[in-house]
Nucleic acid binder design. Structure first.
Lengths: 207, 207
DNA sequence: GTCTCCTACCCCTTTTTTGGGATTTTTTGA
DNA sequence: TCAAAAAATCCCAAAAAAGGGGTAGGAGAC
């Protein structure tokens, strides 16, 4: 039996979800909250396995709520639900500690499946959400930052990102270390940074 | 009609998948390759919509193959399939340009669904794969390697990831620089690395 | 002909990494 | 409960690496 709680400001959705969960075998809905503040208090008393958290709540956002609750009750798994597929909201949710991320049009059986998956330690998410997440790993698609660099500079930067030392890069590229140094200086100038880590953050995005 | 190609070194799997795809309406299997080298040549002549790529191939790995092919044929969507859920393999695949990542025990209908999803621009992945991906976003996640570190060490590592200097970290945390230095030493020992960038790659995944 | 890019060298400072310690507090387990 | 382990704090010294500044020749592009 997986216990679930719901946080959503719309009464209809709240009751709809509650009905769905309670009428499904193996699931039980403990509570339903209409805002983040009530949820933060209530969830610490009555701890469910999984929380369906709406992102756009009046007052404190669902993301904020997850951030606070995940510290206090690390065992609770959070599935964010929203109508928007906003990149920053996705990443902020994941950073805050959400395990799943669904768009609201998700069908009832997919939703129950997601709850089961997250309970078992998985991270269910809509495939287009996943796409946005993994696109952050690729340096080819978004970044004009990299394009102000020359080809050699890009190669050097890539090598720098591996954690190689300057002399190792030099050996690998069959050039002198001083040459590598000159390139890194140009890279830093162009990116307006003072260190390797700063450069990588600027190009690949912060974590 | 979605056209598919298969790359897998096991004949049974290759033929099994081919049969599955060809016998499903809306799908057509163009080719099946037993190794990465053949696939790299063949896929450039006969271009499918989606490629199911095994990771563990004799000779050139599936990850390498994706890396090379994604540059030459950006339109092809790659779904990696493997029996292992190795963190570095996952991240390397995504970095190379794979859009989906499935474990081999995936059921036939889930597989077809994944092909459809990736064709439509999504990124299907097993929920436990997704979990590993997103765990890299949250330091406190149980799956993150960062958990062998103490709380202070995590804080230091986070500061290191911002590109701050040791003395800056010391100032920010109101401790001596020697303390920060000792912590970083312990971090490097635990992660078995020799530099800041290596440590960050180990914890947050390579890029 | 000037410009950018790749290459390479000089001097010098700062930062990081590695190697020894030490002390106190906190946590843990027998 | 008490001792052991782990964590957090600091110090000294030295070597390695990285970063800042300047300069400069050759190749290719415009």
């Amino acid at each position: 039996m997986i216990t679930v709680a719901i946080v959503d400001d719309l009464k209809e959705i709240r009751e709809g979800l509650q009905l769905l969960i309670d009428s499904s075998t193996g699931f039980s809905c403990l509570d339903a909250y209409g805002n983040a503040e009530d949820a933060i208090i209530g969830l610490q008393r009555s701890i469910p396995d999984v929380v369906l958290m709406d992102i756009n709540l009046p007052g404190l956002s669902g993301i904020e709520a997850v951030g606070q609750l995940k510290d206090k009750c690390p065992g609770i798994q959070f599935i964010m639900s929203t109508v928007y597929e906003d990149d920053s909201k996705i990443f902020d949710s994941l950073k805050a500690g959400a395990s799943g991320y669904l768009v609201k049009k998700t069908t009832p059986d997919k939703l129950l499946e997601a709850i089961t998956e997250v309970y078992k330690g998985g991270s269910p998410m809509s495939t287009n959400i996943a796409r946005r997440v993994i696109s952050s790993f690729r340096m080819n698609d978004p970044l004009n930052k990299v394009n102000i660099l020359t080809q050699k500079e890009k190669e050097i930067l890539k090598a720098l990102s591996q954690g190689l030392r300057l002399k190792e890069i030099a050996a690998e590229m069959h050039v002198g270390m001083e040459t590598v140094r000159t390139h890194t200086r140009h890279i830093y100038e162009k990116l307006q940074v003072q260190s390797r880590t700063e450069a990588l953050n600027k190009v690949f995005g912060k974590r």
